[in-house]
Structures are given as structure tokens and as C-alpha cells.
Amino acid sequence: MTHPLSVQLYSVRDLLPDDRDGVLRRIAEIGFGAVEPFQPTADPHGFRKVADDLGLTVSSVHAITLLDGDAEAEAVFEAAAVLGTDLVIVPAGIPEQEFTTAEGLARTAETLNALAGKAAAHGQRIGYHNHWWEFEPQVGGRHALEALAGLLAPEVFLEIDTYWAAVAGADVPQVLGRLGDRVRALHVKDGPVVKGEPHTAVGAGAMPVPAILAAAPADAWRIVELDTCATDVMDAVAASHSYLSALEAQA
């Protein structure tokens, strides 16, 4: 692993409004070296100062507003530059039905490729983050996301949400092997691999985490996320860090 472990801040979204700086401090104290914001245009200068003071880098940013027009996209690119990352990710917002046909995939690729051209003007790259609906459909005999990858410009990368891919029935290590260096980041998650059930700390669920990490590019960011959690979420974030750090030590 060539990057520090990161955590998607959506995991702690309920805690951030009341004490953003305290949450970031706790994440740094747990041992994470990076974070992935999901609202990058919200006080990027203030966020960067706190992160720098805590020794946290920004691995990447999620921004659904990338799809809301040129002005909104430009604001995201400018915020990402302030935050110090060149990886800007579309986390959702493309209609699910676009992943069910070849024509829909072509339109999706056109959208992402156009954004990539705009990002390049800022020295940044566009990525796409999946849920289950990009893996469940088969298009041309392949998972829709894999079919999409063949239509994307080389500079567009993928952030594979390993949990949602598994929920959709994908063999995640095999998928990662096929996608290769197209994958620049992973969401490392765990749980019962059932839609609608809460996630667990990484290492406490049914995901084959060691096999997944072994199949991923060594220089892809490893980013912990819990969409939901039945236990204290900060405890689960800390347990995830402990488990992944132990795996890294054994590698």
C-alpha cells in the first residue's frame, strides 16, 4: 500500500455538522492519514487548514454537483485544488436505467469523458464510484460497469465500492483483476452483503477483504466507508483501521 488509509466522511455525516473539527481530530487520532470529503465546496479553505494541522491529506473528493452544470463543476474543481487532491469523483446521480443498455452506457461515458476534459484543465482527473446498480445488469455479457470502462477515456478512473459490487453478485477480486490500473481507489466496506442491512466494521462481516486488497492495484487508495452502522460509527471506523493496519503489517 503506497497511500495512508483514508475514510469517506459520509460515514460520520451525522457527527460533522456539530463538530467537524473534533471529528477530524478523532479520525487523525485513530491513525488515519487521509479523508475523502463528500461536500468539497463547503469551506474548503477552513477544512484544509484543519486537515493540515492534524496531518491529514485529502485522498479524493465526492461531488454529486459535478453533474449540475458547468458553474457547479468549476466550483468543485476549484475546491478540490484548495483541498489538495487531483481525484474528483462522481458518486451517483446518473440514472440507474442508463446502466441497463448499451445506449445508456454510451451516454454515461460521454458525460464522464466530457467532465474529464474539464477536470484536465485544472490538473485533475474524474472518477466514477459505483453502487449495486452498475453491477447487477449485464451488458454485452459483462457487468455494466465493466462494459462502461471500455468506453471511458483513459484518464477517467474508477473508485470501486467493493461492498456494493459484492451485493450485486460480482466476484470482486476477479473484477479488480480485470479492471487493473483503471482502479485508482477502493471503498473498503464490510457487512452481511445484503441490501438494506447495516454495515459492520471492516473485518467483522462477510466480505473477503484480504483477497480483495490483494487483487487491487497496490497504489490504489484504500478508503473505509460505512453507509449505515448498527453500532457506534466512530468505534466501527476505529475497528476498521485496526483490522486493515494489521493486514498491512502481515503483508
Rank of each mutant, 00 (worst) to 15 (best):
G150Q: 08
D70H: 02
P192K: 12
S245E: 02
A75S: 11
V139C: 08
K49Y: 12
V167Y: 09
R178W: 07
D227F: 08
L112F: 05
D235L: 15
D161R: 09
A144G: 07
G140W: 08
G104R: 09
L145N: 05
S242F: 02
A63R: 04
E225H: 00
E134W: 10
A170M: 05
G141A: 10
P217T: 02
E103M: 10
R178M: 03
E159D: 06
Q8Y: 12
D235A: 15
E248H: 04
A116V: 10
A206T: 05
G55A: 12
D171P: 00
A246C: 09
A215T: 07
L16F: 10
A218K: 13
L151A: 11
P198R: 03
W164P: 03
L112P: 00
V194C: 13
A81G: 14
A153G: 04
L24N: 06
T65Q: 03
A220L: 00
S245G: 09
D19H: 04
D70A: 10
G150W: 05
F38K: 02
F157E: 06
V202D: 01
V175S: 01
D52L: 13
A120R: 12
G177K: 03
L9A: 05
V50Y: 10
L158T: 04
A119H: 11
V175C: 00
R182Q: 00
E74I: 15
H3K: 12
A218S: 05
I212P: 00
V139I: 10
T200M: 09
L67I: 08
T111Y: 01
G177R: 09
P173A: 09
Y128H: 04
I64T: 07
G84V: 15
D171K: 00
A81E: 11
A116W: 02
H62G: 15
A28N: 09
T57N: 14
V188A: 06
R13A: 08
T228W: 02
L67D: 00
S59L: 09
P4R: 10
D181E: 15
L186P: 00
E146L: 09
Q97N: 15
W164I: 08
D70Q: 04
D43L: 08
K49T: 15
I223M: 07
E74P: 10
N130A: 07
R142H: 15
V237R: 05
V194N: 09
E110K: 14
F157R: 05
V76I: 13
Y10S: 03
D181N: 14
D52M: 12
I27P: 01
V50C: 10
E72A: 07
V7S: 15
P95Y: 04
A51Q: 10
D68V: 05
V7Y: 13
W221D: 06
Y163N: 07
Y10N: 05
A238E: 11
L247I: 13
A51E: 08
Q250H: 15
G104T: 11
V50L: 06
A75D: 10
P137S: 06
